[in-house]
Write a protein that binds this DNA or RNA. Structure first.
Lengths: 156, 156
DNA sequence: AGGGGATTATTATGCAGCTTAATAATCACT
DNA sequence: AGTGATTATTAAGCTGCATAATAATCCCCT
């Protein structure tokens, strides 16, 4: 029996392995990563009946009671019209209430309800778990580095 | 008058800045990054009439002439049914042709047409530009680090 | 005052991308 | 030959998102 075929040094597609021309593309890899993130999210939040977008809106309201829809839209890079329907969902679920702003009658101020604050604790815990699963392949140091790079990339 | 309220040590939002409870969440940041990636993509590829998904399928076909739809679906984490319609688009655009596999009559082998190979050069160039814009906030070293971390994270 | 244009929010409508289910053809195995 | 699994495509439906339309309020300027 001849000695086993030596593995090539670089880009070593096996017999019938396929070349991945996008494997070095940051944008493409980010897309793949996000698919996985949503997978993890749905697996963990299936019970809680919240979508990723709804969760992020809720998180902002809990962290900033009295925040206005426009601010949420800006922060999350979604359109104000979307925020409205997401808030509708949270209100229907009894997690959030709209309050009138006396000094700005156009605006509505968003607050978590008591039930919302209670539900948040569970969601926050679940979210931390989800993040941990998502970044499970990275050491803590790498994870922190990863976050730093993402933030730098995002801030223009 | 008592001494002024001390600013909290961490998460020091300015007067009316809003707290971003998700700013440390890898999954959330990845989502934001992907939104920006699609933005860049659409800005650059608007002329070429290709979607991100269509582009990634085309890239795989060019790099692996004769590849089968099922392999593409697996590689890109999309459903086979999606691959079929994306390939339909590429065929309609004259970039790709389907060929019968003699040894496996169920399968179809995908090849770029001559026009497809020509068009690819332009697309590849544009894609490199897009990636560069996307990662413009990072130094080359950081960018390479970023890609490494993404790949590690994705390979479980 | 009060009228015109800008701001804020919500609702309504439409569409692209994706999923699941249904259909068709072929293969592998007994 | 026949049955169940594989491969691909088509069809139908849903979700999330964007744009446009509507409504109410605010700002400012004459």
């Amino acid at each position: 029996m001849p000695k086993p075929a030596p593995e090539p040094e670089v880009a070593p597609p096996r017999e019938n392995a396929i070349a991945s021309p996008l494997a070095e593309s940051p944008a493409f890899l980010v897309r793949l990563a996000q698919l996985r993130a949503f997978d993890e999210f749905h697996r963990n939040f299936a019970e809680l009946g919240v979508t990723p977008a709804g969760f992020s809106v809720f998180a902002l309201i809990v962290a900033n009671p009295g925040i206005r829809p426009g601010a949420i839209a800006e922060e999350l890079r979604v359109k104000p019209s979307n925020v409205a329907v997401l808030v509708n969902g949270l209100v229907a679920a009894g997690l959030v209430r709209r309050e009138a702003d006396q000094a700005e009658l156009r605006a509505s101020l968003l607050h978590p309800t008591a039930a919302g604050s209670r539900a948040w604790r569970e969601m926050d815990r679940t979210h931390r778990e989800t993040d941990a699963q998502f970044a499970a392949g990275l050491t803590p140091a790498e994870r922190s580095q990863f976050v730093t790079l993402l933030r730098k990339l995002l801030h223009r």
